[in-house]
Computed example of a mutant assay.
Amino acid sequence: MKILIADDHDLLRDTLVAFVEGAGDIETRTAPDLGQALALISAEGPFDLVLLDYNMPGMDGLKGVKRALAQAGAPHVALISGEASRSVVESALEAGAIGFVPKTLPAKSLVNAIRFMAMGEQYVPVEFMTGEPDASSHPLAEKLTARELQVLRGLSEGKANKEIARDLELSEPTIKLHVKTLYRKIGASNRTQAALVAREEELF
Results as ranks from 00 to 15, higher is better:
146 A>N: 07
97 A>E: 04
103 K>W: 02
152 L>V: 02
155 L>P: 02
45 G>D: 08
142 E>K: 15
136 S>G: 06
58 G>S: 06
201 E>Y: 07
120 G>M: 02
58 G>I: 01
113 A>H: 04
120 G>C: 06
100 F>Y: 15
103 K>M: 03
167 D>L: 14
184 R>Y: 05
2 K>A: 10
121 E>A: 14
105 L>D: 01
170 L>H: 07
196 L>E: 04
183 Y>P: 09
114 I>V: 11
93 L>Q: 10
99 G>R: 07
170 L>S: 12
159 K>H: 11
78 A>M: 04
201 E>R: 14
204 F>Q: 00
60 D>N: 15
110 L>C: 12
8 D>H: 13
128 F>L: 09
159 K>G: 09
127 E>Y: 12
148 E>R: 06
88 V>T: 15
68 A>S: 08
193 Q>V: 00
146 A>D: 09
178 H>A: 12
137 S>A: 15
83 E>H: 14
193 Q>M: 03
95 A>R: 10
130 T>M: 10
122 Q>G: 10
57 P>R: 05
168 L>E: 06
111 V>R: 00
2 K>D: 09
64 G>V: 04
174 T>M: 13
69 L>H: 08
191 R>E: 13
54 Y>T: 10
24 G>Q: 03
187 G>Q: 07
112 N>H: 11
56 M>F: 00
80 I>W: 01
81 S>F: 01
53 D>Q: 12
27 E>N: 04
90 E>M: 15
77 V>G: 11
74 A>L: 03
198 A>Q: 00
202 E>N: 15
70 A>I: 01
188 A>L: 02
95 A>S: 15
85 S>R: 12
82 G>R: 05
52 L>Y: 00
46 P>V: 03
135 A>T: 02
155 L>E: 02
160 A>M: 12
184 R>N: 13
76 H>N: 15
